[in-house]
Each structure stands twice: as C-alpha cells, then as structure tokens.
Write a protein that binds this DNA or RNA. Structure first.
Lengths: 198, 198
DNA sequence: GGTATTGGTCAGCAAGGTTGACACATTTTT
DNA sequence: AAAAATGTGTCAACCTTGCTGACCAATACC
C-alpha cells in the first residue's frame, strides 16, 4: 500500500511506559497502556479532525441561514425516512424544544415533510422532500470528498481501524442507536401529509 | 497506487455487512472508493463518537460552571505553557472576543496565569496555575479512561489507523498547528506576572 | 371514561460563537 | 522623532443552539 505516514511517531514506545508502572502485560497488548502523550495526541486529533470534518457543510449551510443542527436533521431523516419525532430526539440527544426550533422552519420551508403515522396517528413521520434531499446531497458530497481524501491517504487498513476506535468511543446508548440506524430502513410512511397551516 | 474503480455506486448494498464496524477486515479489501453507505457510517461514527468523547469532561466542567471552551483553553495552554494569546486564537480558530469571554474569568479565578513576554512586552504569555493544572488533570484522567477503553477494544493496529484517518481529516492549517504542538515546548516564560487590576 | 403517550408551542435563560469599533502599550519602520 | 503596525483588552450588539417549565391537543390504551 502507498502513502506511508510522514512521521513514524509513537510506534513501539509503549514498553517504556509499562516499565514505569512496573506492570508488564501480555505480549500483544503493549499499546494498551495509554501514555500521556498518546492521549494528548488523540485529543488534538479529535478536536482538529472533527472541526475540519464539519467545516465544508458548515459553509454551505451558513449561506442558507442554517447551522449544524439542521444538517443533523437532514442526515438522520435521510438515513431513516419515516422516523418519528421521538426517535429523532433520542438520536440527537436534545430536547423537544431544541429540535422544534430547527425542525419547524425546515418543514415550513419545504425541506422536510411530516405525515401522520398510519398505525399511531399521534406520530409525525418525517421524510425529506425533494428539496431537502437535494440539499442533503450537496452536503453529503462535500463531506464525501473530504473523507475520501482522508481515507485514501490513510489506506484501507487504517480505515477499518478508524471505524473500530470511533465505535469504541461511543457509549452503549449510541451503539445501539447506531445499530438501529444501520438496519434496513423502516417501511415507507404511507400516512397522509399533514395540512400545512402556513 | 491502488487505483480504484470510479463509480460503482448504484450497485446495491451487497457488502454492507462486511463494511460494518465489528466485522473482520479483509486484508486486500478495496475500501478506497467511498461508497455511500461507508460515508454515512463515517458521519454517524464521528457524530456519536465525538459527542461521547467529550461527555465525561463536560460533566465535570458543568459542575464548575464551565464549558467545552474552557477545557480547550486548559488543554492547549497546558500543552504549550507560555503560549501567547495570538497563538491560542490561531489554534482555536475563534475570535479574540470569544476567547476573552472564557479566558478572562479563568485568569480571575486563578486557573490561568498571564505574564508579559520578555522579548515582546506586548505579549501575554499564558500558563496554567497549579489550580488550573489540577483541573486539567482531572479532565484528562476522565478522558483517558474513556479513550483507553476504546483503544483496548480496538487493538493497537486499529489505533494506528485511527490516528492516520483523523490526521487525514485535518486541513493543512490544522496539520501544521498540530506539528507545532507536538514539538518540544517553548522555553519557559520568565516575564513578570501581570498586575491584576482587581 | 380516565389516563398515558406523542407531539407542538410559548416564554425565558445561558453558553459560546460572530462583527465592528475603539483604546492602549509597545515595537518597528520611516 | 514621528508614524505605522502589532498584540491585547474591551464595549455593544447579534445569532445559534442548547436548556427548563408549563400547558394544550390529539390519540391510544385500559
């Protein structure tokens, strides 16, 4: 594989740390004691990486008077068409009121469509309108280019490692939510669109 | 170079299961073309992972009436004692006023010490006070446990991959800033502490 | 029919970003 | 010596996106 790292940083320096604590671990587990510098590096990487990961979409969104919160709605509604408001709240981990502030305008501006649930008519099933899907697409493509570059530079093995570590950084709740997200999409909502009071 | 197929997009989601997180990695697998599902997964992982990564410190900080912004100041000042206000602004990528809102109280509450630069007396060199260093330590330890768990679950190869991908997600500016951060610390500030104007 | 659940909405608060303008000490340039 | 540029602080005003508490309407469940 191409693209070896520019700097061969931390590799193999873990035993030193073990010697400090005097706790020799099994042979393959030498990377498992997290020395100070390694965590500091992880903190830096996550800070800079996450910031630059979101920078592209943020720019597009700003032109439309939207923010990251809107992107998250577009993303998760796009990922699970027909998701209920309650499910979306659980995924985002915010309050109903915080969601309403971004969701209501998005419905009014025809980015998101609300339909009544056909089993439970109290529910509001959310889907992207064509307009919403198109915006989501733009944001997605921008981010794809960025991530693609990172993946290409890092190589496939690294990508798999990245996924595993990120997954490990998630708590149990996020893990089960992710699991649900990855499952086959729910059946299409077939309820009638709500009357728009606009 | 692993020159890869350009557009296999519409081919359906056949290998989806393999691409998922816990799945074993096939060595020669072509992960370099970023299919839709792969990027969606990356988005999810970064969203959930980053959120849960910061959750621990956030909790401690909240008890002290601080936020993530304060943590960043503690982190980067701790990482480069004697950093100037201007350098810190460049790293954080925020405006002077935004920084002032968190930094000024932190100086007043004796978390951060300001000294005048000895070469350029206009500069304010920032260092952590013992109180600040202790708080930074607490936050650090909390986060270390969390990251350590993730690293342990993922294994050393994955950790290296994680680092490479995160590095790839950074833009050029962030990369050179990170490089500077990793270098040996600047000489200790020896200027006189500023008189605090009550 | 009574209660629980799902969702919408109003009012108000806080953190942490933004911009623009200005002040001041200090350093650098002319 | 005077002027310009630099590093920092600060004031005023604004935005986004979190939060809480309260209350209402429609619907489902027992």
């Amino acid at each position: 594989m191409p693209a070896m790292p520019e700097r061969t940083e931390t590799k193999g320096a873990e035993q030193k740390a073990e010697a400090q604590v005097g706790a020799p671990v099994g042979a393959g587990r030498n990377l498992l004691f997290l020395r100070e510098e390694e965590l500091r590096l992880a903190q830096d990487l996550l800070f800079f990486g996450y910031r630059d990961f979101t920078a592209g979409p943020d720019q597009i969104l700003a032109e439309l008077g939207m923010g990251r919160a809107h992107h998250r709605v577009l993303h998760f509604v796009g990922r699970r068409p027909g998701i209920t408001v309650g499910e979306l709240l659980a995924i985002l981990g915010i309050t109903k009121q915080s969601l309403a502030r971004v969701l209501t305008p998005m419905v009014e501006q025809d980015y998101v469509l609300q339909t009544t649930g056909r089993n439970d008519r109290r529910q509001r099933l959310l889907t992207l309108t064509p307009k919403g899907a198109e915006l989501e697409r733009r944001l997605f493509e921008r981010q794809r280019e960025w991530v693609m570059r990172a993946y290409r530079e890092a190589g496939p093995i690294a990508v798999e490692g990245f996924r595993r570590v990120m997954h490990g950084l998630m708590g149990p709740e996020a893990r089960s939510q992710l699991e649900r997200l990855e499952q086959p999409a729910a059946p299409r909502p077939r309820g009638a669109p709500l009357a728009r009071t606009g």
